[in-house]
Design a protein around this nucleic acid. Structure first.
Lengths: 347, 347
DNA sequence: CTGTTAGCGCTTTCAC
DNA sequence: GTGAAAGCGCTAACAG
């Protein structure tokens, strides 16, 4: 059998045109699917011929050549620092869902060093999930010279690009205050690295809320762990095995809260009855589990982020001018820490 | 202060040439760093002028335009199906380490639908970590028409591209047999989903090895968990709390083994003395922890994979013809399950 | 409806 | 040592 194309060379639009006996322009029209649209119409028979030829040669459009002409790459870049973090996976999932129907391909950049890469690689829009202070200037320059940016950072100034913010402090405070309605013996489950980081903010919310409620903070009610799920499970087990165990646990991340729920159940405690557990982050895992996890977090964060990024990438619809997008946090009261009335208070 | 370039348009090589008062060719020579090489020499003063102009304008080379001319994108694509899997992260890490020094940027494709994307997006080489049967034909076609592929799959035929294999069965058998040298009461810690998957292979190695050693398999020695670290921790705790607890645990993944070590230590058992624990996968986490994890796995897998991919991408050195790369598995005897002599046997 | 033609930004001979 | 010019694969005016 004679294969038309086992040469290993990549067929071009010209080869297709020759095989189909038409001009390259016609091929372009057919293959970029711009018939009937604003572009010129192409008769059905010619279109068929072209498609057959393309198929036969195994033609695939050269994205680079197309990009140079149209200025669009049909690509968005996601620069994600902590790929192992479920947060990153949520970003990817949401962007994927929004991008694919629009014909846009999300490419993930695992390296933290986005500055060098974005210098040469082009995309219709770029999401950056963390900016070190020494990268701020580069950011400004990129934006100034035509790179479309959406940046997730609490501190950086919006300056020709979009900035997404999501302030944790007040939200975390709400979580602890929710527990304070029914509890006095409230423990905190938090990674040991939470010294000065965002975890620090989350721990501080616990301290402050207890202080405001005139409750003395107890050392043995602070469950530090190593950042892993297994570590959180162990720390939660320790907390719940104390002689006067806490009746509620405030976990500074949802995954830690999930581990705490597992630990409680393993100890025979009914979560939402014997002990209340609340998390931080509003991840989908928490929402889907049983008992469902009470938590605080931004509303609809990933979807909104994805939609913004795609609006920027496609320039459609309504490309409003870039600015700061501040995400309000909400309290999601679910089964693991329900509302406590006077009758169901645990003190 | 007059900025040269706050227009928002992306500067081209021509603008740089004009500003520097030289030709575009000269700019190209200077900026693609081909002075002194085979390319024509450029005098130092001109080179300086050009660099200054480029800097002033914030010039960044257009990768697409370069790609169209040179046929190289300086990019490798990693198509990874399960981004949340530590295995994927290891791939990324290894490729990153190999690629960046060579000026190659790894781009990650989180979508499982690589067929459509690779149809249009070009890279110097592509790694694909899973091939569904219905994707095999597409794979062959891509390779035939010039896409450089490295595929990880146990079944697919190498046909114009590289295939990497890593057969788990015999390696897992070695792990269990290692434990059999010093133990009779050996438990198995494995995710519940391990019915017919690769986890199935790993569980079968346990069954078979016990059978071969004429040891009756016990239901209560099979610790099923939900796939999470916390779940593994809980299951291991249950195993080690049995009246006649096992003296050794064979965990079908390294991360489960790590959780088991944590659980054992929490119960006051000395790992490597009171109880031996072995994993599967040979991940870096296991190697680095304390006590270091005994495990089985392919040797140097990620680095070799990364090196192959980059050899394919750069065509240098020695672009040998594509074929099948079979990874032998080794037993890594470390602290968590040391060699047992007759004197230290636990039966 | 279809073909001709002029580039997009860049690299790369080949003259000077 | 430097510049003129051709052309990579493709799209988009504009003719016909």
């Amino acid at each position: 059998m004679a294969k038309a194309s086992s040469t290993g060379v990549r067929p071009t639009i010209r080869m297709v045109a020759e095989l189909a006996g038409v001009s390259t322009a016609t091929v372009s029209y057919v293959l970029s699917g711009r018939r009937g649209d604003g572009g010129p119409g192409v008769s059905d028979p010619t279109a068929e011929k072209v498609k057959a030829a393309a198929e036969r040669l195994g033609y695939r459009p050269n994205q680079a050549a197309r990009a140079i002409r149209t200025g669009r790459t049909n690509t968005v870049i996601l620069s994600l620092t902590m790929l192992s973090d479920p947060w990153s996976l949520s970003v990817i999932e949401a962007v994927q869902k929004a991008a694919v129907p629009q014909g846009v391909t999300p490419m993930i950049l695992g390296d933290a060093d986005w500055v060098k890469v974005l210098g040469t690689h082009n995309a219709d829009a770029v999401f950056v999930d963390a900016v070190r202070p020494d990268q701020r200037e580069a950011l400004r320059k990129l934006a100034e010279h035509g790179t479309t940016l959406v940046v997730f950072d609490e501190e950086v100034q919006a300056d020709g690009f979009d900035v997404i913010r999501s302030i944790a402090g007040p939200g975390c405070r709400m979580a602890v205050e929710h527990l304070l309605h029914g509890h006095r013996r409230i423990a905190c489950l938090t990674p040991a690295t939470a010294a000065g980081t965002s975890g620090g903010t989350r721990y501080r919310a616990y301290s402050d809320a207890l202080a405001a409620a005139k409750i003395q903070e107890r050392d043995d009610y602070v469950g530090l762990f190593d950042g892993t799920s297994a570590g959180a499970y162990a720390a939660a087990t320790r907390l719940l095995s104390l002689p006067d165990r806490p009746t509620a646990i405030y976990a500074t991340t949802d995954y830690a809260a999930v581990s705490a729920i597992n630990a409680a159940q393993r100890l025979g405690l009914a979560v939402g009855t014997d002990v209340d557990i609340i998390g931080v982050g509003n991840t989908v895992e928490g929402e889907r589990m049983s008992p469902s996890l009470s938590t605080v977090g931004p509303v609809d964060f990933f979807d909104k982020l994805a939609r913004l990024l795609l609006r920027r990438a496609t320039g459609h619809p309504a490309p409003e001018s870039p600015g700061v997008l501040d995400f309000p946090w909400h309290l999601f009261v679910r089964e693991s820490a329900p509302h406590r009335s006077a009758a169901t208070k645990l003190y």
